[in-house]
Amino acid sequence: MSDIFYQKLRQMVGLDGLLSLIFGLLIIFWPDRTASVVTVLVGIAFIGIGAAYVSSIANHDDESAWARLGSLLIGAIYLVAGVFIFINLYVATAYLFLIVGLLVGMTWIIEAIVTFASLKFYNKKGWAFFSGIISLIGGIVLLFSPVIGAAVLWTLLGLSLAILGVIKIIQYFTW
């Protein structure tokens, strides 16, 4: 590998570390504002996706009427969801946390079920069973308190980003 490649790789590690540290600290010290910014980005994405679906109707004359109607409906749903995000950003942020909490909770419960169902394939059944129990408990807790659980996950994301950022910055300077 060339020296230019390693130099660019080192710079990317340093930039990644700096951005991770900044985003992690923003999440830790201003969790509500940072979550609102993420919600705004989701709203912008929804509006963009909706506009793309609606505009695709005119570009695809060879599609069936049902396909164009489906694109129109999906585009309208995305557009409405994006507009509602901007109508009340605080409520949209809370609902985003609610949805993330519920989805993560369901995912952890499904992960636990899959782990329990595949215990016979593990060499260390004790650790797999323990992992399944933790996933099941975590999933149930998130289903019963999804907003609080998502807020805890948000804080853990901030902490992990900050720690990862510091590690990558140290890696950059010691490379």
Rank of each mutant, 00 (worst) to 15 (best):
residue 76 A to D: 05
residue 88 N to I: 08
residue 69 L to V: 09
residue 46 F to L: 15
residue 88 N to K: 04
residue 19 L to H: 10
residue 29 F to R: 01
residue 19 L to M: 12
residue 83 V to C: 03
residue 25 L to I: 06
residue 9 L to W: 13
residue 134 I to T: 09
residue 3 D to W: 14
residue 150 A to I: 02
residue 119 L to A: 04
residue 39 T to D: 01
residue 50 G to V: 05
residue 154 W to I: 01
residue 97 F to L: 09
residue 24 G to F: 00
residue 34 T to S: 07
residue 73 L to R: 10
residue 122 Y to E: 14
residue 168 K to L: 11
residue 173 F to N: 15
residue 59 N to M: 15
residue 156 L to G: 06
residue 171 Q to T: 13
residue 113 I to F: 12
residue 19 L to W: 09
residue 142 L to Y: 02
residue 68 R to G: 00
residue 35 A to K: 00
residue 47 I to M: 09
residue 148 I to V: 11
residue 65 A to H: 11
residue 8 K to C: 12
residue 12 M to V: 14
residue 165 G to D: 02
residue 126 G to S: 15
residue 89 L to E: 02
residue 170 I to Y: 08
residue 53 Y to L: 07
residue 107 T to I: 10
residue 174 T to V: 10
residue 22 I to M: 10
residue 6 Y to G: 13
residue 33 R to Y: 14
residue 70 G to M: 04
residue 149 G to N: 02
residue 158 G to R: 00
residue 112 A to W: 03
residue 1 M to Q: 13
residue 23 F to E: 02
residue 11 Q to D: 15
residue 115 T to P: 06
residue 39 T to H: 00
residue 47 I to A: 10
residue 105 G to H: 03
residue 20 S to Y: 11
residue 49 I to D: 04
residue 23 F to K: 03
residue 159 L to Q: 02
residue 32 D to N: 13
residue 144 F to H: 04
residue 62 D to S: 12
residue 64 S to Y: 08
residue 63 E to I: 14
residue 49 I to W: 08
residue 78 Y to S: 10
residue 9 L to F: 14
residue 64 S to H: 06
residue 161 L to D: 05
residue 158 G to C: 01
residue 130 F to E: 09
residue 20 S to T: 08
residue 110 I to E: 13
residue 44 I to K: 06
residue 100 V to G: 01
residue 54 V to T: 12
residue 143 L to D: 02
residue 50 G to F: 01
residue 155 T to S: 13
residue 82 G to A: 05
residue 64 S to D: 09
residue 38 V to I: 11
residue 127 W to Q: 14
residue 130 F to S: 09
residue 59 N to Y: 14
residue 19 L to G: 05
residue 106 M to Y: 12
residue 98 L to H: 00
residue 31 P to V: 00
residue 75 G to C: 04
residue 161 L to H: 05
residue 124 K to N: 13
residue 82 G to F: 03
residue 134 I to W: 07
residue 15 L to Y: 14
residue 112 A to D: 06
residue 58 A to C: 13
residue 149 G to K: 01
residue 108 W to H: 06
residue 93 T to L: 01
residue 157 L to Y: 11
residue 16 D to A: 14
